[in-house]
Design a protein around this nucleic acid. Sequence first.
DNA 1: GTGAAAGCGCTAACAC
DNA 2: GTGTTAGCGCTTTCAC
Lengths: 352, 352
Amino acid sequence: MTRKSAEAQGRHTIRDVAAAAGVSASTVSRVLGGDYPVSADTRNRVMRAVAALDYVPDARAKAIAGTGTPTLAFVLDDITGPSFAQMAHGVEREATRLGHLCLVHSTGGDADQQLAFVETMRAQRAAAVILVGGAHGSAEYEARTARMAQALHAAGSRLVLCGRPPLAGEARATVIEYDNEGGAHALVAHLLGRGHRRVLFLGGAPENTTLQGRERGYVAAHRAFGLEPDPALRLPGDFTRDSGHRLMRRALADKLDFSAVFAATDMVAAGALTALHEAGLSVPGDVSLVGYDDVPVARDLFPALTTVHVPYEELGRLAVRTALSREPDAPDEHLLLGTHVVVRNSTAHPGS
Amino acid sequence: MTRKSAEAQGRHTIRDVAAAAGVSASTVSRVLGGDYPVSADTRNRVMRAVAALDYVPDARAKAIAGTGTPTLAFVLDDITGPSFAQMAHGVEREATRLGHLCLVHSTGGDADQQLAFVETMRAQRAAAVILVGGAHGSAEYEARTARMAQALHAAGSRLVLCGRPPLAGEARATVIEYDNEGGAHALVAHLLGRGHRRVLFLGGAPENTTLQGRERGYVAAHRAFGLEPDPALRLPGDFTRDSGHRLMRRALADKLDFSAVFAATDMVAAGALTALHEAGLSVPGDVSLVGYDDVPVARDLFPALTTVHVPYEELGRLAVRTALSREPDAPDEHLLLGTHVVVRNSTAHPGS
DNA sequence: GTGAAAGCGCTAACAC
DNA sequence: GTGTTAGCGCTTTCAC
């Protein structure tokens, strides 16, 4: 009958163990801590008591007392998206490797929920918070994010922005981007170089910086060829498979004139491809199709999809490493990862 | 200069706020707590101080003091698998809805890492731990899992096993399964009913209970048709796309005789489909192909994949609900969710 | 080598 | 209404 947790089996405290072993709580702490001189006999008795009670120290109490595993949070829009999932994988592996507890959370693209979760992580005293996905555009959102970055920094933590542009000013956030504009430029140049002149762009989103970047690359590639893209060929949407399917059906129904399609993501491309097939069109015979991200399924579409490779898993690992290794007062860092086109079978010369 | 955190900006405690507002710590606690009579003036001063210091209460300290958001953990083999990702999504949504902090962690299929993480969650005093994915078979693993279940139960938490069979004995674990055997049976019967007699099975894994169940359904369907499946037609592997690709190439190289393929998961089917295409074979013209899980991309393969629908997101939500709603001493529950075949375009009569 | 006591940041019971 | 005190479960001086 130790104090009060008499029959409350399992909810044992360090004092229960101490009592069972006939020592003081501090001794138990020392034994469990590892590095501290304790007599072999005492150690044995304590270990036996720990085993008997199946005692596990309360991680929250350790944390508050200064010991305890540091925590790292990874926030994304939708865990269901394969590219995000790959990144999550990289983040988790690296965080675990570096001895951190890793929390993954997806917000469904809701900016408020995202900020709320970052706040929760600040309350958890997380060592770092990694935010991934295009920013949501609005100035108010940007300001709030900047405030969070400051707050985390002030608390000795830090905010890492992945796949999105830096915040304005001295925001105290680390940024790791990959090249959306350059990749899109190279990809569209590939299309243009094969003779395509009317390239449909699926999934531009004025509020999402990632999609914006890809759209800029699309435009830039045209200009580099001395072309001006037809605005009617740019269909706004999000980065999901269903958006691609819907958009492609609409483009077909509207009898838009194009010989190639640039889908903003591989998932959009997957949906578009299905719509194309449903319409009895052949890819790349009747229309060429390209995507972006190089997610694993890109190889399994038929035809295999030409796309831009983004090193997502590596990106995740890198985010964790820079987040955890930086000196508290090092200046903000800004990394830009390269991307490259992967040519597969979904592109051909027009009318071939 | 409050106590010691003078210039340690951001790392503020409730006492710093109290000092800044000229009140006691308990008053700050009461203001922040919400429900407690506090004079309007005091409240204002406190709120102002909170804002000025950008104070956020330490969640760990709250937790240890009895208040604090409860936590729930979700453990899966690989976040990269689309079916798991969908479940993770359901779990997260529901956990958030019920006011719980949700930790997602993937173990890469490593049983030791899985158990270690469950132990970590026990240390975090998580309200529940949800484990998903086929069990790893070995008796030792099963025993350790049972011990964890007991320990969690004793601590007022609980273990929920998703998509895997119950533990032996009074293990104190809630189980939510979906019907692998029945779904596979119906699916293979669909093939057999169309005249196929030699069905290749890709991805049986003797150590994984999920894959085992699907394999049992495969065999049972044959027997129901008075057939005995050829053991040479069963290729062991895991549930990944790459496994499917490799296995299919091998089957083709070995010139195995079959007119239909049952891939253990949609991802395996995706890899197999690509291998089939690479070999110049037509689906379903030359060979019929079916998968299992009905992940979103199943619709985007060409031809669209006939498969078995598993309500993964619903499964995740259900896991959370039953985990959080059960009485501490209610008997172990065991739910079995139904599945159903979704016929699309990847199957036809043999030789058609 | 071990115990008693103080402290981590917070809440709650008990004064006034 | 508000401050003081004790306590959550742990670690870590500081004594002996």
